[in-house]
């Protein structure tokens, strides 16, 4: 297995998504509220993973444009759950060593009185390895 294939395995395992279940109906991309600002759309996430292109997705801003609203997860007629796949790839991207999208020393500058503690914890969970 080469690296691309390994990544495909990994994101499918982490998300619990089987990309082969997709029947290309496009319902996910039809329902996605953030479609217009995303470079790759939910159905493309599914199809690109199927075609070993996880690395391309990991570099795309689309990972952070997804609202995790899970509208696509809710509506997909085949139970593919594209939103979970997006999340697994996002995790893959932020887990690359030394590639934290949020570092502890940046936090101090960003802190305001109004920011709830929970937001910081969540941000670390989402954007750091």
């Amino acid at each position: 297995m080469n690296k691309s294939e390994l990544l495909k395995e990994q994101v499918q395992r982490n998300s619990g998504v089987n990309v082969l279940k997709c029947m290309r109906c496009g319902k996910c991309s039809a329902t996605c509220p953030n479609y217009d600002v995303m470079e790759y759309h939910p159905h493309q996430f599914v199809n690109m993973v199927e075609n070993n292109q996880v690395e391309l997705l990991m570099k795309s801003e689309s990972l952070y444009m997804c609202l995790t609203c899970f509208a696509c997860v809710e509506r997909c007629p085949r139970g593919v759950e594209p939103g979970k796949l997006v999340e697994a790839i996002r995790l893959e991207a932020v887990r690359i060593k030394e590639n934290n999208h949020l570092k502890p020393d940046q936090i101090v500058k960003k802190l305001t009185d109004k920011m709830p503690q929970q937001a910081i914890v969540t941000a670390f969970r989402k954007y750091t390895k």
Binding site: R24, G26, S29, A30, T31, C32, Y35, D36, H41, H43
Partner: peptide, 11 residues
């Protein structure tokens, strides 16, 4: 109606 057009890659 919000819909997808997969061949044109647009919503």
């Amino acid at each position: 109606v919000q819909a997808s057009d997969l061949l044109m890659q647009r919503q």
